[in-house]
Computed example of a mutant assay.
Amino acid sequence: MLGLGELELKVMDVLWTAEDQLRVRDVLDRLSAERTFAYTTIMTVLDHLHDKGWVQRTRVGRGYRYWPVRSREEAGAHVLREVLDSSGDSESVLLHFAASVSERESELLRRALENGRGTP
């Protein structure tokens, strides 16, 4: 996602799939199946994600519990909105995007627009 590094995105994936708020240790444990990371690395990544507005946190004892500010889908829509707002020519960007969508995606967009811009 725009504005996220590779490790930040992996941490966000863990948070998006979690059913509850997670401690640094919880995130580290879920990532460890893939690769070994230092506790402080994950703590720093979560701190950066908090500073960037991707996660919220609450203090529990000496540490924090983290959770995403937006769902994965909402975050994707937010990134698209940022791209359109910063493009200088949102119409052109939308037209290029529309030319790249699949038939299924096109149908979803059509239905969403017919339903008053709500969810499909």
Rank of each mutant, 00 (worst) to 15 (best):
V14R: 11
R59I: 08
H50S: 10
G116H: 08
R110L: 11
L46I: 13
L22R: 13
A18S: 15
G88W: 10
L7H: 10
L9I: 05
V11I: 13
G61K: 03
A75D: 12
L94Q: 13
H78L: 07
T58G: 09
A98R: 11
T41R: 04
R104V: 10
G61L: 07
T40G: 07
L7M: 12
S87E: 07
T58A: 15
L84C: 09
D20T: 14
R72Q: 07
L31W: 01
G5D: 09
R110Y: 13
L28S: 04
R57L: 04
V69G: 06
E91I: 04
T17P: 01
L94P: 08
T36K: 06
T44L: 14
S32F: 01
A98D: 01
E103R: 15
D89K: 10
P120E: 06
K10E: 15
R25W: 12
P68S: 04
V45H: 09
S102M: 03
D26P: 03
H96W: 15
S106T: 15
A38T: 01
G63R: 14
T119Q: 05
A38S: 04
L49R: 10
H48Y: 11
E114I: 03
S90T: 06
D26N: 14
E74T: 02
G3Q: 10
S71N: 02
P68F: 05
E107Q: 15
E114C: 01
L109W: 10
S100R: 15
S106L: 09
G116C: 02
R117P: 02
T17A: 14
K10Y: 01
A33E: 08
H78I: 00
L95A: 14
L7Q: 07
V83F: 02
A98F: 12
H78W: 11
E73P: 00
T40A: 10
L84Y: 07
E114L: 08
D51E: 14
A18Y: 07
L31Q: 03
P68R: 01
R70G: 00
V79Q: 14
R59W: 12
T41D: 01
P120T: 05
G116P: 03
G116S: 04
A112F: 00
D20S: 13
A112K: 00
G61A: 04
L49T: 04
S102V: 02
L84D: 10
L113E: 03
R110G: 02
L46N: 03
R104S: 08
L9R: 15
A98N: 07
R35L: 00
D20I: 08
S92L: 14
L9H: 11
Q21V: 06
G118Y: 03
R23H: 11
K10Q: 13
G53E: 05
D89P: 03
L2N: 11
S87P: 06
L95G: 04
A38K: 05
T40M: 08
A38F: 01
S86W: 09
E6K: 11
E91M: 03
V55E: 02
S100V: 00
V27P: 11
G53I: 01
L108M: 08
T17R: 15
W67D: 05
